Amino acid sequence: MKVETHTIKNEVFLSDDRNNRYLLQRTWGSENQAIVAVITLKPVSVSGVENDLTAMLIQNHVVEMRYQGYLVANLVSGIDSSKKLSKTLLDRETEDELLKEVLNKKDIQQIVIGCG
Rank of each mutant, 00 (worst) to 15 (best):
T5Y: 12
V49F: 08
I79Y: 08
I39Q: 08
L41I: 10
M56F: 10
H61S: 15
V102K: 00
N20T: 02
I113H: 01
K84N: 09
A34L: 14
L85R: 12
V38Y: 03
V38H: 03
V12D: 09
G78F: 00
I58Y: 01
E11A: 06
L99V: 01
V36L: 15
F13L: 14
E50Y: 02
W28S: 02
K83D: 15
L103R: 14
S77F: 01
I113K: 03
L14F: 04
N20V: 00
I35H: 00
D52I: 04
L90P: 02
Q110T: 03
A73D: 02
V44Q: 09
D17V: 12
V72R: 06
Y67I: 10
E93G: 13
N74D: 05
D80C: 07
C115P: 00
D16P: 07
N10K: 11
R21G: 07
Y67K: 12
G29L: 02
E4S: 15
H61F: 09
R18Y: 13
R26K: 13
D80H: 02
D91T: 10
G116C: 06
V46G: 12
H61G: 06
E64N: 04
E97Y: 00
S82K: 13
N20G: 00
G48F: 10
I108N: 01
L53S: 08
V62Y: 00
M56R: 10
V44M: 09
D107T: 14
K106Y: 01
V112S: 00
L14P: 03
V3Q: 05
V76L: 07
T94L: 11
M65A: 06
Q110Y: 02
K2Q: 13
T94K: 15
V72D: 03
L24Q: 10
Q110S: 03
K83C: 12
N104T: 11
G48Q: 05
E97W: 01
N10A: 15
M1V: 11
T7F: 14
N74G: 01
V102I: 06
V62R: 00
E93F: 11
V12K: 14
D52Q: 02
V38A: 15
I111D: 01
V62T: 02
D17M: 11
D16H: 14
I58N: 06
R26F: 09
S45C: 14
Y67S: 08
V112W: 06
M56Q: 15
Q59D: 08
T27V: 12
Y67V: 10
I113A: 01
L75M: 05
T7N: 11
S47P: 11
H6T: 10
E93N: 11
R92M: 10
V102D: 01
A73S: 15
K106L: 03
E101V: 13
T88D: 13
K9D: 04
I79M: 14
L98H: 04
V44F: 05
G114C: 07
I108W: 00
E11F: 11
L23A: 06
F13S: 07
N20I: 04
Q33T: 12
E95V: 07
S81H: 11
V38R: 09
